[in-house]
């Protein structure tokens, strides 16, 4: 008699504990999902705000006329951002890819590990420190003043370690047999690297370059004291000539008390966000294609 009572009470407790666990687990997932929704909401809100402020400000004048004070167009800034981005990728590309080849092909060397570690550390150095470095060494030290070259080199310092690491990972993802087969055929090291290995992973290396480009495009802090600001389009001088760029418009014009300045800031934000996100999304798409094949 008493044993059946005990048994049913134990069963009740077990059922209670079982349900409690199920409910707690469900709650856990709800909290996890809640955080996810919150982050997704933040991204969507950023995009919506930028689009809502930016689209009404878009017109052809933006692309054809330079800035005049806090009004006019953005032709000078668009050109400046394109120049700085292209310049930084042109400088950092060969150096980064070369360093990546070194890290992947000389893996067993201690120096290779040192370079890899330093690249990882350099990626995390605050970009304003790089800007200050560029200001001290190039703008003042070499007497270049605010200029395209000082800005492009400063950005290149920022993205070189990034390109180096993506190149290294791309090379290391190749099957070892590829390398061995090439050497077995009597190919020399440069031939193996440039004719066999790099062509086999060119997709990944180029995606790394693209992502670095997106990073470079969105930067502001390293440029404020290396590139300056100019209302005029570029006159072809690499040094001694400040230049406009889009991210500058965003942070400096939004604080101006004029409607035209706010419109330009939002238009610049829309352009830069669109390009940065498009490049990043495109690269992710290419990468997931490469992963599948």
């Amino acid at each position: 008699m008493s044993s059946t009572v005990l048994q049913s009470r134990l069963e009740g407790m077990a059922r209670y504990r079982y349900h409690r666990r199920r409910i707690l687990s469900l709650l856990g997932w709800v909290v996890c999902g809640g955080f996810f929704v919150l982050l997704g909401f933040a991204l969507v809100d950023i995009l919506v705000e930028i689009a809502a402020g930016g689209f009404p400000a878009l017109n052809t004048k933006l692309f054809t006329e330079p800035t005049q004070g806090v009004s006019g167009g953005l032709a000078n800034a668009i050109e400046g951002t394109a120049l700085l981005t292209a310049g930084s990728v042109l400088i950092a590309g060969p150096i980064g890819i070369g360093t990546g080849i070194y890290m992947a092909e000389k893996q067993e060397r201690v120096f290779s590990r040192v370079v890899r570690f330093m690249a990882d550390v350099l990626v995390g150095i605050p970009s304003i420190v790089l800007g200050l470095f560029g200001y001290i060494t190039m703008v003042v030290g070499l007497g270049w003043h605010f200029s395209v070259l000082a800005g492009a080199i400063t950005l290149a310092i920022m993205i070189t370690p990034y390109i180096a690491r993506t190149t290294e990972l791309a090379l290391l993802a190749l099957p070892g047999s590829l390398r061995e087969a090439a050497y077995a055929l009597g190919a020399t090291e440069p031939v193996v690297v440039f004719r066999v290995l790099l062509p086999s992973c060119v997709g990944r290396v180029l995606t790394g370059l693209l992502l670095a480009m997106a990073l470079s495009m969105g930067e502001t802090a390293p440029l404020i004291y290396t590139v300056g600001w100019s209302n005029y389009t570029w006159n072809g001088h690499l040094t001694h000539e400040p230049l406009g760029y889009l991210t500058y418009v965003i942070w400096s014009f939004i604080n101006e008390p004029f409607e035209s300045a706010h419109q330009l800031a939002f238009a610049a934000a829309l352009l830069i966000t669109f390009f940065a996100l498009a490049i990043t999304l495109g690269s992710r798409l290419i990468l997931s294609r490469l992963d599948k094949s």
Binding site: L39, A42, E49, G218, T220, I250, A269, T273, A276, L281
Partner: peptide, 22 residues
């Protein structure tokens, strides 16, 4: 995953703008 990870692609000055206006 792209929804969260795309936040990394938004330039920091755009985060600043969003912070300022929202």
């Amino acid at each position: 995953a792209a929804v969260v990870e795309l936040l990394a692609a938004v330039p920091s000055v755009v985060f600043g703008l969003w912070g300022y206006v929202v």
